[in-house]
Amino acid sequence: MDQDQLLPRDAWLASLPRSYTAAGTLLTDEAGRILVLKPNYRPGWQFAGGTIDLGEDALECARRELLEETGLDREIGRLLVVSWTHPSEALDHPAVHFVFDAGTVPVGTRIALQEAELEEYRWVTEEEAYQLLGEARGPRLRAALAARADGVVRVVAGTVTGI
Rank of each mutant, 00 (worst) to 15 (best):
P8F: 13
G32W: 07
P87V: 08
E60L: 09
A143G: 05
R64S: 03
G151A: 08
T104R: 10
R122F: 07
T104L: 09
D57E: 08
G55D: 02
G24I: 10
L26W: 06
G50V: 03
L67C: 06
L67S: 07
D73P: 01
A22D: 00
H86E: 15
E69C: 06
E120I: 02
R33G: 05
G138Q: 07
E60F: 06
L16D: 03
R137K: 12
P94W: 15
E128N: 02
A11K: 11
D57A: 04
L6C: 11
S15I: 04
A58W: 00
H93V: 13
W123I: 03
R18P: 09
W123S: 03
L145K: 07
A112M: 14
G151H: 01
R74D: 07
P17M: 10
L118K: 03
P39V: 01
S15H: 10
V160S: 05
F100M: 10
L35E: 08
L37H: 02
W12F: 15
A14C: 00
L16Q: 05
W84G: 08
L59H: 02
V155Q: 14
G77Y: 07
H93K: 14
L37E: 05
W12P: 12
W84P: 01
L6D: 12
D150Q: 10
R64M: 08
K38M: 02
G24E: 11
V124K: 01
G103W: 08
V107Y: 01
L13P: 12
N40K: 05
G49R: 05
A147L: 10
N40I: 02
T104H: 09
L59S: 03
R33L: 06
W84H: 12
G103E: 11
P94M: 15
S15F: 10
I52T: 11
E75M: 02
A129H: 11
A14M: 04
P94A: 15
R122S: 08
T104A: 07
L13C: 13
F98L: 09
R140K: 13
P87R: 07
P43D: 07
L91K: 09
L80G: 04
D101A: 04
E115V: 04
V156Q: 12
H86Y: 14
T25H: 11
L6W: 14
L54H: 10
V105M: 04
T125N: 04
D73W: 00
R78T: 08
T109V: 02
R18Y: 12
P94R: 15
L13Q: 13
V82H: 01
P139I: 00
E126I: 10
E60S: 09
G138C: 01
V153R: 09
W45G: 01
S19T: 13
V156P: 09
R63N: 06
G32R: 03
V160D: 06
D150L: 09
T109M: 02
V96W: 15
R74W: 04
E120G: 00
A129Q: 09
F100P: 09
L7A: 12
L6M: 13
Y121P: 04
E69V: 03
R42K: 11
A14Y: 02
P94V: 14
G134H: 01
V152W: 13
I111Q: 04
L13E: 14
I52H: 10
E30Y: 00
V99R: 07
G44I: 06
D92N: 12
